[in-house]
Design a protein around this nucleic acid. Sequence first.
DNA 1: GATGAATGAGCGTTCATTCAT
DNA 2: CATGAATGAACGCTCATTCAT
Lengths: 216, 216, 216, 216
Amino acid sequence: MAGLTHALHMSQSSLEDNNPAARGTKRRQESRRRLLEVARRMFVERGYHATRPQDITKAAGLGHGTFYLHFKDKQDCFMAFIEQAQAEIDAAIIDRAASAKSLPEMVEAVLVSIYDYAENHPGVLMAAMNAETVVPADKLGGGTLLQRWGEKWGELLKTQAKQGLVAKDFDFVIIGQAIVGAIHQASSFSFERGRSRASLVKALTQFIVRALTPRK
Amino acid sequence: MAGLTHALHMSQSSLEDNNPAARGTKRRQESRRRLLEVARRMFVERGYHATRPQDITKAAGLGHGTFYLHFKDKQDCFMAFIEQAQAEIDAAIIDRAASAKSLPEMVEAVLVSIYDYAENHPGVLMAAMNAETVVPADKLGGGTLLQRWGEKWGELLKTQAKQGLVAKDFDFVIIGQAIVGAIHQASSFSFERGRSRASLVKALTQFIVRALTPRK
Amino acid sequence: MAGLTHALHMSQSSLEDNNPAARGTKRRQESRRRLLEVARRMFVERGYHATRPQDITKAAGLGHGTFYLHFKDKQDCFMAFIEQAQAEIDAAIIDRAASAKSLPEMVEAVLVSIYDYAENHPGVLMAAMNAETVVPADKLGGGTLLQRWGEKWGELLKTQAKQGLVAKDFDFVIIGQAIVGAIHQASSFSFERGRSRASLVKALTQFIVRALTPRK
Amino acid sequence: MAGLTHALHMSQSSLEDNNPAARGTKRRQESRRRLLEVARRMFVERGYHATRPQDITKAAGLGHGTFYLHFKDKQDCFMAFIEQAQAEIDAAIIDRAASAKSLPEMVEAVLVSIYDYAENHPGVLMAAMNAETVVPADKLGGGTLLQRWGEKWGELLKTQAKQGLVAKDFDFVIIGQAIVGAIHQASSFSFERGRSRASLVKALTQFIVRALTPRK
DNA sequence: GATGAATGAGCGTTCATTCAT
DNA sequence: CATGAATGAACGCTCATTCAT
């Protein structure tokens, strides 16, 4: 499963800046942290359009203008949130998937980690996935979160195919997308309908494994 | 394929009004038709937030106030558009899927009809699918378009399973969602990347059929 | 003196619009008139930067938004005021100058009419003259008010020179500017210092006439 | 030409402070000097309203707060610039005019020195002349730059008249203003239109000398 | 003396909606 | 039935200034 570990290392730029001058003082960093924390909560709970910079700063206990000390504008703040969230999500899923030993195990590991993340950070996953409905898409690093996941799945499956664990006659680029699409839609549905996580994991694993496993 | 034909008969409320007084004259109906036509084009091209009622009425050659003669508010207009679009999309897909004779044929028929629709009505499908990012979700009839499609697929597969055309040991509710999710994501990706429609149809059909076909 | 009568016919576009559709209803016209009237007063009394669109609409007894129904933005409103004022000033001065029979008479007529206008519309003349400190200059029609006046004086003097009323060996383009500059500065000074109008008119006429009159 | 040499000795207050405590260290003086240098450049290039204290301190390589260590507020800084500029301009013009031997020579000397200064310090002259459109006029020492120049011209001409070099029957207070007005307007026009400096100097000298020279 | 993060009143502007005509 | 002028709450954002460090 090592294939998953060459994770995405993108868009960390605004998360940490090694230039000591730009990194800012402790106070500055603390303000930014609080703003981003509040912004995250509000973007998730109310959505982008219903969240005003004023609301964010007020809830963070700061003045209106402070917002623009840390973010170019509202959109910039949203993107900082999205990048943070996507990095976090990627990390959470990769950590678990990396330890998987077989195809079923991997599918399960990914599903479980997604489910865990979604439970522990309600709404964040969905916000991250719908980021491109708010920001002109090309401003986000390399397409949708789902698309990037799909690409990783594709690469991963290609590797697995070489080892004979997955049928070789697939268009892995498309199949990668198909799988993450299946996971996404089935998961949102299950989650929303309050269905048991176990049944979801079982059904999806079964579906994906059957599709991919090579036949004699 | 009859399973698919009990289409959605929901939320027609604002499409036709049975109150004889309000049903209106020819002129009234004509105004509404033009408004909705323009609204559809604008919602698709510019998005919900970038479309103002003024823009719609102006492009329709009507006065601003006329908008509120036909729609309670902007959201109501958007929902009318969404309902119209969803009905249209459902119809377009059902028509073609209904004639399929086997699982592969059906998968292909659905894919082809989706692709055709998307090509002939650029943006409409995506707008319809992202409707819930604009309207509080519970106001839309019975969840997401994708969810409803997933439910239909589920029912359909259950029927097919009884006939032995599909493996019986699936949780069809979840698998229905998984399939439409796979289709959606793989399709958007292919479409966006300008990949050939044939390769998409082939890959997706292969994937879905392998997953579902019962093994000896 | 007919030279002065081919007055400037520029930038009337926003003062009156012959397109019946755009001309608007009586109510619309009335609103615009009131806005412009108040705007004029405020721009003159407080200056451009200290006048907020809100102040204008409030004093005009209208809602904030109404401002933007009639003017693209604050600057557009200012320019409408400037154009109105300049047209008015031009008219006021031309009317009187047109009846002059000799050089001294003409100088006096112009001075008197400027003085009259300045007294009856306090501040307007200065606002009109300093318009280019507020608007990027090239957006105003053909340079400064003073420059345009200077050009007219130049043309006028050229005509007079041909008739032998004015010395022929002048660079009339520059002299035109010099004269209006002299008038402007001497007038503002006199006006501000509360000096008698008669002494101003006498001194300036004397100065200009002596400079221009041909010697034997 | 001694008349011109009793230059303006006003409003030096913020240029040097005789309070020994506040006069400050070398470092302090150096900071102020740099701020004023940058401020001057920016006020000239961008104008008062488009220049923020932040821009000044940043370009000067100082912290934002430092600005208020040296200037009460933005307006105070602007006035310091204006006073500096006016003193500089006065000096530049007086130096040259002081050596003139006759009326034509003097007029020419003044024109040449103004032109030279304007070329060597682009925009400064204009900024200095329009200072009162930015600062409430009465805060500037003794009226407009142009007015003060006009007053000096008046005094000068009175002296010349006593010597019989200039006609005696003028209201020199007004004529002084008229002359600087003529110079200002003709010069700005020529400068802006890219006309030759020689033709300007010739035309203006001719005009002024003819007006003032006593007749037999 | 110097700093720069923080401030918040205030800016110009938009737009969904109303209502007199 | 249709109109379009009018509305005003609300928006995202700026910037001269303060003050704790």
